[in-house]
C-alpha cells in the first residue's frame, strides 16, 4: 500500500465538484497551503468547506473564495475576509457558524463513530434553536450531531510513509481531529520520512487515519498578525 503522492495536484485530482472538505488550520496557522493552492489551480467548484476560519482575502481559503469555488462555508469565525463578507451579502455563498468547541467536538464525534452528544455550549442562544435540549445533573445541554466530510486536507510538520503525523506548536489545532473524520484524509507535511524515523511515542495522528500523504514543496507560512515586543 503506497500512501505517498508526489504532488498536491495528484491529491486534488481525487476531489469532484460539489465535495465537502474539512481543511485544518486556525487562522493561517497550520493550513495545508499546497493542497489549497492546488485546488484553486484545478478550479474544483461548488465546494462545501469546513474550517475554523475562512482565511484572508489573498491567502488560504480566501483564495478559493476569490475564485468563487465555494458553495458553503462551515466555520466558527469568519471576520478577517472582505470577499467572504461580500459573497454572504449577495447570497453567493451559504454560511453556517458553529461555536468553536462544538465544531471540534462534532468533528471528533464524526471521526470516532459517536452519534452525537449533549453540550452546554449554546444553550439559551440562537445556536440551540430547533435542537433537542436536556437537563443532566441540574445543568442544561444541547444535542449536537456528528460532522463528517468527503475529504480532509490536513497539514503536519513531519510524517512518514505510513501516514503517521507529528505537528508543531499551535499549527496542530483542528488538524488531528479532522484527520479522523473524512472518507479520504490527505496530509501534507514539511518533511516526509521513512517509517521508523519518527518516535512512535510522539505520534499525534496514527497513520490509520491517513489515506494519502505528500511533502509540500515549500511553505510560505504567512503571518496574519505580526505582533512583537521591542
Amino acid at each position: 500500500m503506497n500512501k505517498v503522492l508526489q504532488r498536491a495536484e495528484d491529491a486534488v485530482a481525487l476531489v469532484p465538484d460539489g465535495a465537502t472538505i474539512m481543511i485544518g488550520g486556525f487562522g493561517l496557522c497550520g493550513i495545508p497551503e499546497n493542497l489549497i493552492d492546488a485546488l484553486r489551480i484545478r478550479g474544483t467548484k461548488d465546494l462545501t468547506i469546513i474550517s475554523n476560519n475562512a482565511g484572508v482575502d489573498d491567502f488560504g481559503i480566501g483564495r478559493l473564495l476569490r475564485a468563487r469555488q465555494l458553495k458553503k462555508m462551515i466555520a466558527s469565525y469568519v471576520g478577517e475576509n472582505k470577499e467572504f463578507e461580500r459573497q454572504v451579502i449577495t447570497g453567493e455563498i451559504d454560511v453556517e457558524l458553529i461555536p468553536q468547541g462544538t465544531l471540534a467536538e462534532r468533528i471528533r464525534a464524526g471521526g470516532a463513530g459517536i452519534g452525537g452528544f449533549f453540550t452546554p455550549t449554546g444553550f439559551g442562544t440562537v445556536v440551540a434553536e430547533g435542537k433537542e435540549t436536556r437537563v443532566i445533573d441540574g445543568k442544561s445541554f444541547v444535542f449536537e450531531q456528528p460532522l463528517r466530510a468527503d475529504f480532509a486536507f490536513v497539514k503536519a510538520w513531519r510524517g512518514d510513509r505510513k501516514g503517521n503525523l507529528i505537528y508543531r506548536r499551535t499549527a496542530r489545532n483542528f488538524n488531528p481531529v479532522m484527520a479522523t473524520a473524512a472518507k479520504v484524509t490527505i496530509a501534507e507535511v514539511e518533511e516526509l520520512v521513512e517509517p521508523g524515523r519518527l518516535d512512535p511515542d510522539a505520534i499525534v495522528t496514527p497513520g490509520i487515519f491517513v489515506r494519502h500523504i505528500l511533502q509540500g514543496p515549500s511553505y510560505e507560512k504567512r503571518i496574519e498578525k505580526r505582533t512583537v515586543r521591542l
Binding site: 486556525f26 471540534a104 467536538e105
Partner: peptide, 27 residues
C-alpha cells in the same frame, strides 16, 4: 514563529513548561 500564535492570531511565545494540544482537547 508562524507556527506559534494565540487565539487572536497574534504571534506569541511559549513559557517554560508549555504544552500543545488539538482544538478538541482544548475545548
Amino acid at each position: 514563529d508562524p507556527d506559534l500564535i494565540n487565539a487572536g492570531k497574534e504571534t506569541v511565545t511559549e513559557v517554560p513548561g508549555s504544552c500543545y494540544f488539538s482544538s478538541a482537547d482544548s475545548f
